[in-house]
Simulated assay, not measured.
Amino acid sequence: MSSALHAAVDPPPFLPVNTTPVSDIAAQLRETGLVALDHLVMRSAALAFAASIMTVTTHRDSDPDGLTRIYDTRRHAEQPGFAGLSNGELAPHTERSGVARPPRLMLLVCASPPALGGECLLSDGQAVHQDLATHHLEALDLLSAPNTAYFGDGAGHATQVFTRYPSRRVAIRLRLDALARWSPLVEPHLPHLRSAIQRHQIVLPLRFGQGYLLDNTRWLHGRTAFSGDRLMWRALGEPLPVLGPLAYGFRQTLRAAERKSPEVMW
């Protein structure tokens, strides 16, 4: 995908966490899967907010409290799976796509904006799915076929881009780097997928203290290349009851639902 910005969708308004009730944040998360946030100006505030809405889980690169510092380490640029710790472009992806059950939620907060670039790129899996159902239905069917993708290294996970559940729900899972391997049937359709992702892309520059919360089973996230000392705090985890019932992924379009493709559970 080109690194040129393509603001296909207007970004959501930023909600100040110090004055916005958690119930409002939860309602927007349930409705759209994405909430833009403001006034998270301290690391302790970002961690406290994360802990108030999710069970924060540790990660390979996280600190002991579960927060991960996302910055250019100047050591990881050429290592597969470590693109987030460089200053290069980061292709749209699902967080932890190579594990059996990726975390439901991701919080990303800007601790230090870059000198140039580094905009967050977000694409709604529901819009991408509907786009493919309308214009490239064969591609959608193949991208939904079981075990047509393998994400991760030797301990990765065999899966598919779109996983269909009962009650017409769909979850998206994706990576587009060197740790993604594809069925020969799927590979010719990846350009359609990439184009649909870009058509429904939100460009979200983050200033100090701003961030976003997303449903990792619905939204893809990435970023543009940057220069300067960009630093983000990231938390991954499972939703707490305070958010109310949070259904997996999104409801698929009627046209796609009418296709007789198998439903697969993780």
Rank of each mutant, 00 (worst) to 15 (best):
H6M: 11
P11V: 07
P12V: 09
P13D: 08
N18C: 09
P21M: 01
P21S: 07
V22F: 02
H39R: 12
M42Y: 05
A45V: 06
A45P: 00
F49Q: 03
A50Y: 06
A51L: 09
T58R: 11
T58K: 08
R60H: 14
D65L: 03
G66L: 03
G66S: 11
I70V: 15
Y71E: 15
R74F: 08
A77F: 02
Q79T: 15
Q79Y: 11
P80G: 10
F82T: 06
A83K: 05
G84Q: 03
G88M: 09
L90K: 00
P92E: 00
H93A: 02
H93K: 04
G98C: 06
R101L: 14
P103G: 11
L107K: 01
L108V: 15
S112K: 15
S112P: 09
P113Q: 10
E119Y: 06
D124H: 11
G125R: 03
A127G: 03
A127Q: 12
H129T: 04
Q130E: 11
T134W: 10
L142H: 09
A145Q: 13
P146C: 08
P146I: 03
N147L: 06
N147Q: 07
N147P: 00
A149P: 01
Y150S: 01
F162I: 10
T163K: 11
R164Q: 13
P166G: 02
R169N: 03
V170R: 01
A171D: 07
R173A: 03
R175L: 08
E187H: 05
L190C: 08
R194H: 15
I197H: 11
Q198D: 12
Q198G: 06
H200G: 11
Q201D: 01
V203K: 04
V203T: 11
R207W: 00
G209N: 09
Q210S: 08
Y212T: 08
N216W: 05
G222S: 01
G222V: 09
R223P: 05
R223V: 07
R223Y: 04
S227R: 13
S227N: 12
G228S: 08
D229M: 12
L231A: 00
M232I: 13
R234P: 01
E238H: 07
P241K: 04
P245Q: 12
Q252K: 01
R255M: 06
A257K: 00
S261P: 03
W266D: 12
W266L: 15
